[in-house]
Amino acid sequence: MLRYVFHRLWQSALTLVLASVVIFLGVRALPGDPAVTMAGEQADPQTVAAVRAHLGLDRPLWAQYWEFLWHSVSGDFGHSIRTGSPVRAMIATTFPVTLQLAGYAMLIAVLTGVSGGVLAAVYRGRWPEWLANGVSLVAMSVPTFWLGLLGVLYLSVRLHWFPASGYVSPLHDPARGGYYLTLPALVLGLTHAAMLQRQTRSSMVETLTADFVRTARAKGLAPMTVVVRYGLRNSLIVVTTVIGLQLGLLIAGTVVTERIFALPGIGKLTLDSLFSRDYPVIEAVVLVIVASYILINLLVDLLYTVIDPRVRVAGRTR
């Protein structure tokens, strides 16, 4: 077991280092010059050169990358070119907002997606399955930004059920904070619930036709016991994998939703930094998102050993 854990940790660390190289080169390939942005369009070449030297952009790429990697490991991402604020403080302020939104949306996705998938699998070939598949198909086809705009137009402006924008921290006021996050979480959660519903249904259909499920039914066990204890439990590997992937996508894909609902999350910070060519902020934000995605996948892999004992045995024999 420990060998398996160390092996996954080593793979995750290597993936993060390779991702840092891609992030660094990708940011440097962006059009525009942050030195010109900081100095101003009308600045003379000497001023631009001085700003570039101050930012360290005149040094070789390998030296810039080494400094970026060293600062990332130490947790010091430098200062923003646009505001001069510490990048670590900016991320510490905005990232919790994105995590709260992603967690709330994931809760909605799991509750609706898993229940819809189980319902479609149990009533296979009947109207509940057709309804669940139809709703999931529509949810997967509608773009998130369009669903968000519809939510603002009908649920906020016309019906006044939810606020159209704004943010209140759930840590300070849980009821009001949850109220402000409900509509954007619904927009994100329903989109991801569609994929989770289809994967849950597919896995449940395969499990419910297995021999051990037929044996459980032949013993006279209650239908709900068969579905939950034997069907859903043995489908958790696939469901957990999809949940982990969807949660990583949620954290990385909140940019549009945060923009629509004016949430001060990491998505808004990313867009503002891209427009101003703020290299330190862009690099730090993307690296934090990638690290979060890698960490989620690592936790999902380790969770397999709890859900399925066969994975735990395989890990010990390596």
Rank of each mutant, 00 (worst) to 15 (best):
L69T: 14
L196A: 02
I81T: 12
R201T: 01
S74T: 14
I81G: 00
W146M: 14
R233P: 05
V110N: 11
P86E: 03
L99T: 07
D33N: 15
P174I: 02
T240F: 15
A284V: 06
R158G: 02
A29R: 15
A109N: 12
I307E: 05
F275K: 13
A105C: 13
A218Y: 09
Y230S: 08
W62I: 13
G315L: 00
T200V: 00
L287I: 04
S115F: 08
P223L: 03
T112M: 14
W146P: 11
T37D: 01
W146I: 14
W161Y: 04
T112L: 14
M106Q: 10
G125R: 05
N234G: 12
W146H: 13
Y104H: 09
V27P: 01
R124V: 07
V281M: 05
I243A: 12
S276F: 03
I243Y: 00
T241G: 15
F212T: 08
G116H: 07
L61A: 15
I251A: 04
L208E: 10
G178T: 09
Y104R: 04
V17G: 04
A175D: 03
S235D: 06
L14Y: 10
V142K: 09
L196D: 00
V114A: 10
V290A: 15
L302F: 09
R259S: 12
W10D: 06
Y304T: 06
A210F: 10
V87F: 09
V36I: 15
I23Y: 07
G166F: 02
L159I: 03
V73R: 10
L55A: 14
V228N: 11
L221K: 00
L299V: 15
D33C: 11
L30R: 13
S273I: 10
N234V: 06
R318K: 08
A39Y: 09
G117P: 03
V51A: 11
T98K: 05
V300L: 00
T98Q: 05
L14G: 07
D58V: 11
L236R: 10
A262D: 09
L269A: 11
S12W: 06
H71L: 13
H7P: 03
L249W: 04
V281N: 01
T94G: 00
P184S: 05
I282H: 00
W62Y: 07
L208T: 01
Y104F: 15
T15W: 04
L2A: 07
L263S: 07
V227Q: 01
F261A: 04
T305V: 08
V242W: 02
S72R: 10
G26A: 09
P163N: 00
F261I: 08
S74E: 10
R59I: 01
T305S: 15
P170S: 07
P264Q: 09
Y304M: 12
L188T: 08
G220M: 04
V227I: 13
Y230M: 08
M1E: 09
V227A: 04
L245R: 07
G56S: 06
S12R: 03
S169D: 14
V138T: 15
R88I: 12
L119Y: 00
R88Q: 12
L119M: 13
I23Q: 12
D76C: 08
Y279Q: 09
R52V: 05
G75C: 06
G253C: 03
T225C: 02
G148C: 02
L303A: 15
